[in-house]
Write a protein that binds this DNA or RNA. Structure first.
Lengths: 187, 187
DNA sequence: AGCATAAATAATAA
DNA sequence: TTATTATTTATGCT
């Protein structure tokens, strides 16, 4: 991998940790542990990466996407970057947990969750609609935005529902292909 | 659409605080608490509902699908049913956690996970490949389709991977140039 | 009682 | 970053 080092010498931490793995004056093991704990704390509060990211964007600026949280949890970032983000997450999570103790409403408010954010009801497509959808899928597995909109309107379903249908359909197709190529005996 | 609301939904539970909620001699609150803890313990071990279900099917008989685990965690089952399943899950989880303490390999074995079941590729280029790629890039930042195909075959990577490499490389170059020249056209 | 798959979430590519 | 894919969860159905 590209070394890319030497941009800055942070010698702020004078404390020498004995057996921990240190890189550029950063304690990797400590960060690793924190990341793991952070994920668990997040799940304990029933929060998604998206929610954490959005909430942080409000208080800390617009640099916290779902991807960013994901990458931190998996430590798919540079040590320097992790070191920078860690205290922010630490502080935020502390606050969130405190709010949680004082009642869920406080947490919801803090995170900016909708109070009655229920899962969407599972739509069931009519056979007629499915037939048309499948026909379209055979023609083109990746319809454009405009095509999806038209199709949704034509069939009388929400646009998003149609979009998701194509996502899942592509998924199913891929899985089928994968299974077939595995050479498993047909049932 | 006919909303058909109010289908067998209990009205608000103005349950009295302090005493446990009992139904048919079953302590609902206890089960509720267990279900929540179970989910957290499952996540701590990094297991999916599917994995738990499959593992249980081996040790406890074929009555534990992913759906079943899901429904237990959400308590979307009858109290009687929950009461019946609870000790099974309790026992299994205990065992799983013990194995986990003795090393991940033990857990994997217990759960029946594929040792090498990892998510997906993430192409990383060998230094040799990178050297060749960079040489080609210096010669021509916009290789034709045929050239990309040849190069991909030569290096032993997927064509698409190579194509994208050039995209990203051009991007990097552009960013560098832009940074150097400071004022640039917004393309 | 659990399969099929819609919806939601996490991870990765562009 | 944002868009999209891969994975997991949840639920309509019989």
């Amino acid at each position: 991998l590209s070394p890319c080092s030497g941009s800055g010498h942070d010698s702020d931490k004078g404390s020498d940790a004995g057996s921990d793995q240190m890189v550029d004056g950063i304690n990797l093991d400590e960060i690793k542990e924190f990341a793991k704990a952070f994920k668990l704390r997040r799940l304990s509060l029933g929060l998604t990466q998206t929610q954490v990211g959005q909430a942080l964007s409000v208080t800390e600026g617009p640099a916290y996407s779902q991807s960013a949280i994901c990458r931190f949890e998996k430590l798919d970032i540079t040590p320097k970057s992790a070191q920078k983000i860690k205290p922010v997450l630490e502080r935020w999570m502390k606050e969130a947990e405190d709010r949680y103790k004082n009642g869920h409403q406080n947490l919801n408010e803090f995170v900016g969750m909708e109070p009655s954010k229920k899962r969407k009801r599972r739509t069931s497509f009519t056979p007629q609609a499915l037939e048309i959808l499948n026909t379209q899928f055979e023609r083109n597995t990746h319809p454009s935005g405009a095509e999806i909109t038209t199709l949704a309107h034509q069939l009388g379903y929400e646009r998003e529902v149609i979009r998701i249908w194509f996502c899942n359909k592509r998924q199913a197709l891929k899985n089928t292909v994968r299974m077939m190529s595995k050479g498993s005996s047909p049932i």
